[in-house]
Amino acid sequence: MMSKQVSYWTEFYKGLYDQNPIFRQVLGMCPTLAVTVSGPNGLAMGLATSFVLLFSGIVISSLKNLIPKQVRIAAYIVVIATFVTIVDIVMKAKFPEMSKDLGPFIPLIVVNCLILGRAEGFSSKNNITRSVLDGLGMGVGFTIGLTILGGIREILGSRTIFGLQVLPDAFEPWVIMILPAGAFLTLGLLFGLLNFVELKKKTKKIKEDQQRALAEIKKLTESSEEDLAVKEG
């Protein structure tokens, strides 16, 4: 059990931004870069990963007391690979087009560091409710990240969002965006942008803190001056 219990809401919410798998933890980079040539692809990959994340989390957290420590990684891997195979088979049967697009990157969810990382780092130490919330949060965070990245690359690389043309024909599509190089560049720039925002937030907070502190000091000195004045008076 974790020594400090946080609220259920935080357990879910942390995956969205504070511990976003892509932008904060830099986990699961292979699919992040590989399949995000378009919004729908990013979304589908995100959902598939979330499914595996959620269910392997449930199984692992309910089995956590049964699995001997020495073989836990092997056991986790089998559980994860089983759910990945289920996703793969179901997608092939029900969404053949999407399955073709994502191709070998669905099975590669098995080695997505995010999933094993959550299994080992979270589900094996927490109860089912918390594992579900954590899995959902991380999954949603991951999906949002993938969809944004896919969306940006799709707009600039094919002029469309989810297949709908949004940029005029006069806009020459940036082919580089849907090529591998574009994936690295877009993600790198997004990371930078996020850091920029964070840095600004931090400096703003520091400034606010400073101002608050100054105001406090001022107040204190004023009150002490008043005290002095009272005493002298």
């Binding site: 699995i67 073989v71 092997a74 089998v78 559980v79 690979a81 089983t82 289920i86 092939k92 049967a93």
Partner: peptide, 25 residues
């Protein structure tokens, strides 16, 4: 035993799902 049980459960589950999906695919 634990590994074996996990393996068997996983194999059985997958065999079942694959049986369902193969004709559809």
């Amino acid at each position: 035993v634990v590994l074996l049980v996990i393996g068997v459960v996983s194999g059985g589950l997958l065999a079942y799902i694959s049986d369902w999906a193969t004709p559809i695919i």
